[in-house]
């Protein structure tokens, strides 16, 4: 077995080496694809430009197509920094020793999800989870989305006697991202859906939400969500003190244009420990070892 692995690895490195190896280390980051990709591309190219200007190194944003792809790229060491959600951040940090949550949006400390409903359900906004939602069809976002899936499931289980969502609802599906969830509930493909409140706001601002067809009927209690997470070996690659400098640079973002594209007012410091509540929920859901 060892021989086979060795041979495969040599083959892999040979194939990769000549054509693809870059000379100077490029600082590469990614993000979970949680909403419309065009918007993410604009947002993160701005961040890449900003980091390049402030840090004086080559910076590259790599878009990926799924939440696990972002985590895998981080675990494999192909990206050094990522804009993760609560759960994906915890997943990634558990697999990369020394990696750290360094910054979050001011809103991410007390984030929330909206439960949205198609107008045909006739459901009205309520302070508590309406029990009349049982038996309807429900869309989550990506499977490992904190605000689109994991925390909503946690609150649903609390409200419905720890019954799994597919036992409470007639159909449960995962749309992949929050913008997709909004479209799916708006079209009636699903009657209900859980979405990240910031994406809901951004999509409404972009004119993608028809208030006559879909509306918010409940919001979850607060939980910690998105954060910038950096690998523990960043200093070894980019020089001593790099992580500190990177953190300060991210916290110093005051450009209204960049912040607006995140739907955040500013960035504040973050720590791994802050995500303990999400970690506990993810563990209970079997998303962590």
């Amino acid at each position: 077995m060892g021989k086979v692995i060795g041979a495969l690895a040599i083959m892999a490195s040979l194939l990769q080496a000549p054509a693809f190896a870059a000379q100077a280390p490029v600082f590469v980051f990614t993000a979970i694809p949680d909403q419309d990709e065009t918007r993410l591309n604009e947002r993160f190219s701005k961040v890449a430009d900003y980091l390049h200007e402030k840090l004086g190194i080559a910076v590259k944003y790599v878009p990926v197509k799924s939440y696990p792809a972002a985590v895998t790229a981080f675990v494999n060491g192909q990206v050094q920094l990522a804009w993760f959600g609560g759960v994906t951040g915890v997943q990634a940090r558990a697999r990369v020793p020394g990696s750290m949550a360094i910054a979050q949006g001011a809103e991410d400390d007390h984030f929330k999800s909206y439960l949205i409903a198609n107008a045909s359900t006739g459901l009205k906004p309520a302070a508590d989870i309406p029990t009349s939602i049982a038996g309807k069809t429900l869309a989550f976002g990506a499977r490992t989305s904190t605000s689109g899936s994991v925390m909503p499931e946690y609150y649903l289980r609390k409200a419905f006697g720890d019954r799994a969502p597919d036992k409470v609802f007639s159909r449960v599906g995962f749309t992949g991202d929050h913008s997709q969830t909004i479209q799916a509930v708006q079209s009636g493909a699903y009657q209900l859906g859980f979405v990240d409140y910031s994406v809901w706001d951004l999509d409404r601002k972009a004119g993608k939400v028809d208030d006559k067809k879909v509306s918010v009927i409940w919001e979850t209690p607060p939980f910690p969500d998105y954060q910038w997470t950096v690998r523990g070996d960043a200093d070894a690659t980019f020089g001593a003190g790099f992580t500190t400098k990177l953190t300060q640079t991210l916290l110093a973002i005051t450009d209204k244009d960049i912040l607006g594209r995140f739907g955040r007012s500013k960035f504040i410091p973050a720590t791994n420990a802050q995500y303990a509540p999400v970690e506990a929920v993810a563990k209970a859901a079997g998303l962590l070892e």
Binding site: M1, I5, L8, A9, A12, S13, Q16, A19, F20, A21, A22, P25, V26, V28, V62, A73, N76, G77, Q78, V79, Q80, T237
Partner: peptide, 22 residues
């Protein structure tokens, strides 16, 4: 075709990934 492939990302080693995978 060989020369039109996109550049890969440096960082990470296929060897370490393989060992972890298997």
């Amino acid at each position: 075709s060989f020369f039109s492939l996109p550049a890969g990302l440096n960082g990470g080693s296929a060897m370490a990934n393989l060992a972890r995978f298997f």
